[in-house]
């Protein structure tokens, strides 16, 4: 497959999210969060992963795109907040996501907000190399 431009990657990701979440094209902006803005539920992440695999010809391992197991791991969470070790683990596991805002609160409840359309695009770009 010829190397995709950033715009082409965004457009294909947009098609995937429109199909998976039943949202309109213009809702899928780079800064839109999948859960808060586009209404994704947990099963949708599996659906999105399967569709990305098909659309881009990539293989996505479980938890690779959104390592939710980190925020469910008592080694990385204390009193509903991600610890320093947890934040380090998330940074290591999620180079595709911008964790700056999340790092200010570290609240587990805020974690879904790190998953934006841009994070999905970055994830795909990293996978494609």
């Amino acid at each position: 497959m010829a190397k995709l431009t950033d715009e082409q990657t965004l457009e294909k990701v947009r098609e995937v999210l429109v199909d998976a979440l039943g949202v309109d094209d213009d809702e899928v902006t780079p800064e839109a969060t999948l859960v808060g803005d586009l209404g994704a539920e947990s099963i949708d992440f599996l659906d999105i992963a399967f569709r990305l695999e098909k659309a881009f010809g990539i293989k996505i391992e479980e938890g690779e795109m959104m390592p939710a197991n980190v925020i469910n791991d008592p080694r990385y969470v204390a009193d509903g907040k991600v610890t320093d070790a947890g934040l380090d683990e998330l940074k290591k596991r999620m180079p595709h996501a911008n964790l700056d805002t999340f790092a200010q609160t570290r609240s587990v409840e805020d974690f879904p907000n790190v998953f934006t359309v841009e994070a999905v695009v970055n994830f795909v770009k990293n996978k494609l190399g």
């Binding site: 599996l46 695999e53 098909k54």
Partner: peptide, 8 residues
């Protein structure tokens, strides 16, 4: 089956 993994 289109896709099968440990999660679903």
């Amino acid at each position: 089956i289109e896709r099968l993994d440990t999660a679903g």
